[in-house]
Design a protein around this nucleic acid. Structure first.
Lengths: 138, 138
DNA sequence: CCCTCCCACTACGAATTGTAGTGGAAATTC
DNA sequence: GAATTTCCACTACAATTCGTAGTGGGAGGG
């Protein structure tokens, strides 16, 4: 799983992937294991896309450790290594740790500042976490 | 100020810039306003670097809105648009907001989990923030 | 008047991502 | 069994980003 960049100016999967990569991942996370043909046909519904283009990008995703490739007879099937939830969990965790390493506790203040619309339950949860952190310090 | 990517696998300014860009910014944040020559000579202390290489990269930083360029006679002087502190503040804020937008309150939990070594003062501050957030909700 | 210093313009290579052509091997069809 | 279709491997090219550097021009000092 080899994601290198987090893109400020994009949204969702496009923060981690190129646009075509993102569409492919979106589809595969929905359908789990699929052939290139199936992916290409699905993308084609939106706009024309060459089979080989899809294949190349999918093979690159395998090289990057995002997809797994399996042969069934002469058919190649591709499937995400992680679920979308697992992927997002891992990325948000990595980014969070990176941010803390880089900027220290100050980010947490930014977080809370930005979090005006947090719901009550989350705030309670945070409060408890803080309490337990305080205890650990004693 | 046009930073696009945050790099997982780098550290410090290298998360936002290429390595040469980062060295240049580091120097200019220390010295404020300097000529290309001054920058190049400073970098040269580490390893040989062509004057034109430095110039090209500095001009690109101007195009990106990171540096400002000013002519004094026929000499060009370059200076960061923001202080390093301002820059880091802005980036950490942007990233924080992006992360929250993207992943919701869950990141905060990650934060606190990762924050085992937070100091007492920070924890107090967080507690107060939480309290005021709670009040706002009433 | 020549030389040196500084800058503008231009170009190239590696890496990343999207694009697609060519051709080969297997399956299907006649 | 030969022809056609299906699917994949290999290869290549374009745009972008970043580091690199060559060529040449203009301004000032000796």
């Amino acid at each position: 799983m080899n994601i290198k960049n987090f893109k400020y100016d994009e949204v969702g999967l496009n923060r981690f992937f190129g646009p075509l990569e993102a569409s492919i991942m979106e589809y595969l996370w929905d359908k789990n294991e699929q052939s290139i043909k199936a992916v290409q046909q699905s993308l084609e519904l939106d706009k024309p896309i060459n089979f080989n283009t899809v294949m190349t990008v999918m093979n690159r995703l395998v090289e990057k450790g995002i997809l797994e490739k399996r042969s069934e007879g002469r058919l190649s099937l591709f499937r995400p290594v992680q679920s979308k939830a697992e992927f997002l969990e891992e990325q948000s965790k990595k980014l969070t740790e990176n941010l803390l390493d880089e900027f220290g506790g100050a980010v947490i203040s930014h977080m809370l500042d930005a979090m005006k619309d947090a719901d009550q339950a989350l705030i309670e949860k945070l409060e408890q976490k803080i309490q337990s952190l305080k205890k650990d310090k004693l």
